[in-house]
Design a protein around this nucleic acid. Structure first.
Lengths: 214, 214
DNA sequence: ACCGCTATTGGACATACGCGCAATAACAGT
DNA sequence: ACTGTTATTGCGCGTATGTCCAATAGCGGT
């Protein structure tokens, strides 16, 4: 209802879209859903975005880019490639909230049908891969790691992580929540010449022992 | 238009659904699409299926189960676990037609929103995993392979394959078509105590060299 | 205090969706 | 040939979708 500046309104549309997408999934988020969540009319959305595809792409971009930036910042505050890779897994948040990975799943599935969303998920997927690849390459340079093809290793680790997360999201209960990150870390260790267990497992991974205290 | 037996009509509905889904994706296949593809009225579909969710689940079941059965048959006609695992990758058809993997992608993405489709994809995913796991366990028994946890290894290899295939399907051109199976085979070799290259790479994987004949 | 710009409204438009249902037509058994 | 069963029709219902647009309302500059 209140008149906002274009920038502020755009941000609010994106925020409302993410709020709806967390409940219904990106693929099923409609113009009217967003308008209702924002408390405004539906015509307003098309005053800022040419198509719904653009709205979804912008929303997904914001959420995923924020995740990426947070992870990137956390990693760069660490010294050494081993520490940084450990931090990568520790702040891998796609698994935390259920909706987070479902959003990626929807983006991949819709990539073909919604061009803007597709190019956004492509760009962000590559960005995640490069983040890991350059970290490994850095470890190669100082001799901490020994990886013959950081680029390929990054794709493999990310894809393993994605494939396992997909089972977790689509078929809950089929595999355990805890094993996903553990398996991905073990695979990475083998690829970069580290002994199994060299990367520090996140604390949340020993749920029964570390939680209840007894 | 011609009057068919319930069984035959049911099969035709499923076949028509798969024909449409190959073009539009499972998620976007509608009752009217199927009816048009079959050349009948839309009401007929609901005479055989209680809901569209059931139609999609039945169609996906047929396609994926056929893939699984074909792979399973090809594997069991081989002697020894190493041969069988090589055959598994050779007949991994999800990558061949573009639509095949997009169907899995849609199924995973819609698993939450369409219960019947979700439980079908869950069941088939587990069946694929068990196929690999039991093959590895067989190799363990006769000493051909040395794998400490065939169940976990099967999940990891399948998930790696799925994650890489997803990039291929959603973001064409980001990774090469040829590396997907090669990387998955290499990962499996490492997990079951085989030297890299022990599993026979499919012929289609050296496209430039083996195709043109020169 | 006025005015121009534009953010915002509210709804129309055409199309699409899953589902249900009375009417019809074709086949099987006698 | 007649009849009962049921596969099939064709359309309607309610709802939903993305997109567009004239009208309105609120703000900034003079």
């Amino acid at each position: 209802m209140p008149r906002l500046s274009p920038g502020a309104r755009r941000d609010e549309i994106i925020a409302a879209t993410l709020r709806v997408a967390a409940l219904k999934g990106l693929a099923n988020t409609t113009v009217r859903d967003v308008a209702t969540a924002m408390g405004t009319s539906s015509g307003l959305i098309h005053h800022y975005f040419a198509s719904m595809d653009d709205v979804l792409a912008a929303a997904f971009d914001k959420a995923a880019a924020a995740d990426l930036a947070a992870t990137q910042a956390a990693m760069q505050s660490c010294d050494g490639a081993v520490e940084r890779l450990s931090t990568f897994f520790a702040s891998y948040t796609r698994l935390d909230e259920y909706s987070s990975f479902q959003m990626w799943l929807d983006a991949w599935s819709e990539a073909r049908r919604r061009p803007a969303l597709g190019s956004t998920s492509r760009r962000l997927n590559i960005a995640w891969q490069r983040l890991i690849a350059t970290t490994i390459a850095g470890g190669n340079d100082v001799g901490t790691l020994r990886c013959s093809d950081p680029d390929a290793t990054a794709w493999r680790v990310l894809s393993l992580l994605d494939g396992l997360s997909m089972q977790l999201a689509a078929h809950p209960g089929v595999i355990g929540r805890a094993v996903v990150i553990d398996w991905a870390m073990t695979a990475l260790e083998a690829e970069v010449g580290l002994e199994t267990g060299s990367l520090k497992r996140p604390a949340a991974m020993q749920p029964a022992r570390s939680r209840r205290g007894a």
